Simulated assay, not measured.
Amino acid sequence: MGEVLNVVVAVAVIVFIVRWVTSGKETSSGPSPSAVLGFRPKNVTTEMVDTVHTMFPDIPSDNIRYDLLRTGSTQTTTNNILERGFLPAPPPAYYTLYPRAADSTPAARPTPAPSPTSSGKSKSENLIGRYHLEDRVALSSGVEVHTPEEAAGRAVWEDSAEKREASLRERKAQMILAARQYVSPIHGT
């Protein structure tokens, strides 16, 4: 019984010495990722980060990478986003190991091409230009309409499809002009 106890103590001392020697080497080359982050990080590929980022483009890549380092699974990270609505920001120590991805992300991510179904109109075009109401803006500047709902009025069912279409276009134009007059005093334009 005494010999078994001596063997167990000897093995424990050897394990302690080996751990002490190997931990001394880590501090000379820098702290280990598990010591900095507080957990043992899982392997994360850029494909994993991109997969989650394409599903949730409003979540920063650093937050996604940090959660993936903790979970190691895109499915778990996706569930975390769906349950919480966000991912917590990584701690400052994270950036010592992994430099900010936000600096390189916009340049690396191409802008999406316009869809073939879009009409090719620029986003800066407003409703006045889209419905060709520029000439009516000057004429309606003296007319006071209180709300866009009052400008729409009541529609009368017309006899033909052409008359109904023309009536709808006119009501749209009146609503756009009324909305412009209604919003202009608020914004001071």
Rank of each mutant, 00 (worst) to 15 (best):
113 A>H: 03
128 I>N: 14
97 L>D: 07
117 T>M: 01
96 T>M: 06
147 T>R: 13
137 V>D: 12
129 G>P: 02
78 T>S: 11
135 D>Q: 14
92 P>S: 14
94 Y>G: 09
74 T>Y: 01
137 V>I: 08
104 S>T: 11
90 P>V: 04
123 K>C: 06
78 T>V: 02
90 P>F: 05
131 Y>T: 07
105 T>M: 11
92 P>F: 03
123 K>D: 11
76 T>W: 00
101 A>Y: 07
96 T>Y: 04
134 E>A: 12
74 T>R: 03
80 N>Q: 12
125 E>H: 05
139 L>W: 04
105 T>S: 10
81 I>W: 01
129 G>Y: 02
93 A>I: 01
121 K>P: 03
99 P>F: 08
114 P>E: 05
142 G>L: 02
149 E>I: 03
120 G>F: 00
110 P>D: 08
100 R>H: 03
87 L>E: 11
137 V>T: 15
96 T>S: 14
90 P>D: 09
88 P>M: 09
146 H>Q: 14
116 P>N: 02
120 G>D: 07
86 F>T: 11
137 V>Q: 15
136 R>I: 02
91 P>L: 09
95 Y>S: 14
131 Y>G: 12
97 L>F: 02
101 A>D: 10
98 Y>M: 13
98 Y>S: 15
125 E>C: 05
109 R>N: 14
82 L>M: 13
121 K>M: 09
97 L>E: 07
85 G>N: 05
134 E>V: 02
132 H>R: 15
98 Y>D: 13
117 T>S: 08
112 P>W: 00
117 T>V: 02
102 A>V: 01
141 S>P: 04
122 S>K: 09
88 P>H: 10
85 G>P: 02
117 T>Q: 06
112 P>M: 04
149 E>G: 14
135 D>C: 06
83 E>G: 04
120 G>K: 03
85 G>V: 01
131 Y>W: 13
125 E>W: 00
134 E>L: 07
81 I>K: 05
85 G>T: 00
118 S>Q: 05
139 L>T: 08
133 L>Y: 10
118 S>N: 07
92 P>Y: 04
130 R>I: 06
146 H>F: 08
93 A>P: 02
88 P>I: 02
141 S>V: 03
122 S>M: 09
110 P>W: 03
110 P>A: 10
76 T>Q: 15
125 E>S: 12
76 T>A: 15
98 Y>I: 12
97 L>Y: 03
80 N>M: 07
131 Y>V: 09
109 R>L: 12
94 Y>L: 15
83 E>Q: 09
131 Y>P: 10
103 D>W: 00
79 N>H: 03
149 E>N: 15
111 T>E: 05
92 P>V: 09
141 S>H: 08
75 Q>H: 06
130 R>M: 13
89 A>P: 09
102 A>F: 01
99 P>K: 09
124 S>A: 15
90 P>W: 04
75 Q>E: 15
76 T>G: 08
75 Q>P: 00
